[in-house]
């Protein structure tokens, strides 16, 4: 696949103007995500009340694929329950590694813009990193790495 197909308007726009940029002062959950080989580096903070993600913010130094993935992820998990968010982590992971059954119902919506990375093995880690980091924040493990 030509990687230019992946760099669609939506991804370029989220890269340029990431949503939920900045860390929360009153976070209940935090995690750091790192791709040691390419240098993508994210900090993610969440405020979870009861079972609901009330607020989410991130910062970091990352490529467009990773940053747009993080931006769109934060927008979509805000207001979701932890269980729903974790379900999306699993679905996103499956989609980008080619394991998601396209016929089966899923909750990814516009996030399917990242489906193309499954054909770019060196970029899968970039797209997945924010989701690993979200999972680590929920689990309280504080760090996520795609290595």
């Amino acid at each position: 696949m030509d990687s230019r197909e992946l760099y669609q308007e939506m991804i370029l726009e989220h890269n340029k103007k990431p949503r939920n940029w900045g860390l929360l002062a009153d976070a209940t959950h935090k995690a750091e995500g790192l791709n040691p080989l390419c240098g993508d580096h994210l900090h993610l903070s969440l405020r979870v009340a009861g079972d609901t993600v009330e607020a989410v913010g991130f910062e970091g130094e990352a490529c467009a694929i990773c940053k747009a993935s993080a931006s769109m992820m934060t927008a979509v998990v805000k207001g979701k329950t932890r269980a729903d968010a974790e379900q999306m982590v699993q679905e996103f992971r499956d989609m980008t590694t080619g394991k998601l059954d396209p016929a089966a119902p899923h909750h990814l919506g516009r996030l399917t813009v990242f489906a193309g990375v499954r054909d770019l093995p060196t970029r899968v880690k970039c797209a997945i990193l924010p989701w690993h980091t979200l999972h680590a924040a929920f689990a309280g493990t504080n760090t996520a790495s795609t290595e």
């Binding site: 030509d2 990687s3 230019r4 992946l6 760099y7 390419c38 240098g39 993508d40 130094e61 990352a62 490529c63 467009a64 694929i65 940053k67 770019l120 060196t122 970029r123 970039c126």
Partner: peptide, 13 residues
């Protein structure tokens, strides 16, 4: 304004 990784992927095209 462009991360090196994006540059590398696009140059590969």
């Amino acid at each position: 304004g462009v991360h090196p990784h994006d540059v590398g992927s696009l140059l590969n095209d």
